[in-house]
Amino acid sequence: MVWPTPVDQLNFHGAGFQIIEIQKNIRLRNNSDYKIFPISRINAAAALILRGRLCASAGGKPRLFCCRYQVGGSAMSISLSQVAVPTFVQLLNSLTNLLDKAATHATAKQIDPAVLVNYRLAPDMFPLAQQIQIATNQAKGAIARLAGVEVPSYADTETTFDELKARIARTLDFVNAFTDDQIDGTEEREIVLKREDKELRLTGQNYLLHLVFPHFYFHVATTYAILRHAGVDLGKRDFLGQIPGVTL
């Protein structure tokens, strides 16, 4: 990672801590005490200012309890709506593009489209249609649960490219229907998922970042892999789709 400013230009406010190491973490030292915490997304075009406050622990020893990164004078923060909605929109649109290319390939090679819709990478893996069904289920389920509304139910009966594309479009409409205020502030909301005779309980943030996203990416990537393995002319840019604000 390239840091935006030299070490001696990084300012820490609080109790005489000095920065002694920058790698994947910043390490702060005050006499024999030190604190370590990770550095995340840094705007390389702006100066990094690390701010913290200290309070006394039970033993009277100072401890860092609040830190944040500032760029250009404003705190760097990102909300669940900024994380969730653009991610789902980008890759759901990518899925539509993948299906368009698959349809073109099937026509050019005189392949029955049903062959590709039912194609799978291994005998015990789900076929392409089910990969897309699960990916869309993850997207609509996440937005609904974070917003505190009922998850829409789909029939899972798609058997053609057009039907799968219609499912994706329906999911995009649902994802885009919510305001930021309906999703933001739900980081600590308890999400309860029923799994047969068990219940899985997660905070909204952990649910999105550590359960939904891995599932969603897996099934989108597997859709890409199925079509690529079947001979469809695809590349990584087709998987990435349109990155917001970026021209590839």
Rank of each mutant, 00 (worst) to 15 (best):
E196P: 00
G241T: 08
G52Y: 08
Q182T: 11
D181P: 01
I42L: 09
K35C: 07
L48D: 01
T203E: 05
A177C: 01
G245D: 14
V117W: 02
A102L: 09
E199S: 12
I20G: 10
K35P: 06
S79W: 05
A139Y: 07
I132W: 04
I132E: 04
T247F: 11
A58E: 13
N11M: 01
G16I: 07
R27T: 14
A225W: 03
Y207E: 09
G16W: 12
E187W: 04
V232P: 05
A56G: 04
K24S: 10
R53W: 08
F216N: 09
T203L: 00
I132F: 02
E163A: 10
P86R: 04
Y207I: 04
T203A: 06
L116S: 14
L234E: 13
D181F: 03
A169V: 14
I226Q: 10
S74F: 08
G235C: 11
L211D: 14
G204K: 05
I134E: 05
R41A: 13
F12I: 15
F213C: 14
I39V: 15
Q18V: 15
L50E: 13
D100C: 07
L248T: 09
E21M: 07
M76I: 15
L193N: 08
Q138K: 09
Q205P: 06
L146E: 05
T171F: 02
A75D: 14
T222H: 03
G245I: 05
D112T: 13
G60Y: 11
F88W: 03
H229V: 02
Y154H: 04
S94R: 04
Y34D: 12
V232T: 12
A108N: 14
G59L: 11
G73S: 03
D156I: 06
L54F: 09
R29F: 03
S153E: 11
C66E: 15
A103G: 00
A129P: 00
A129F: 10
R237E: 11
E163G: 13
F37W: 02
V192A: 07
D184Y: 02
V89Y: 00
A147K: 05
K194R: 15
E150K: 15
L48T: 01
Q23C: 05
A84E: 03
G52H: 00
P214I: 11
F216G: 02
N206S: 12
A114M: 03
H219F: 10
R63T: 13
L28K: 06
G148V: 12
Q18C: 06
N11L: 10
L211P: 01
H229K: 11
F126Y: 10
F88E: 07
G185Q: 00
S57F: 03
E150M: 08
E187K: 03
V246D: 11
L92N: 15
G16R: 06
G185C: 10
F126H: 09
F218L: 11
I36D: 08
P123R: 03
N30V: 08
L28Y: 08
V220M: 00
E158S: 01
T159K: 10
Y154R: 10
H210V: 05
V192M: 10
A129Y: 06
P4C: 04
V2M: 09
P123Y: 02
Q90K: 15
G185A: 06
G60K: 04
T157S: 09
A106C: 15
V85S: 09
D181S: 12
A144G: 06
A230K: 07
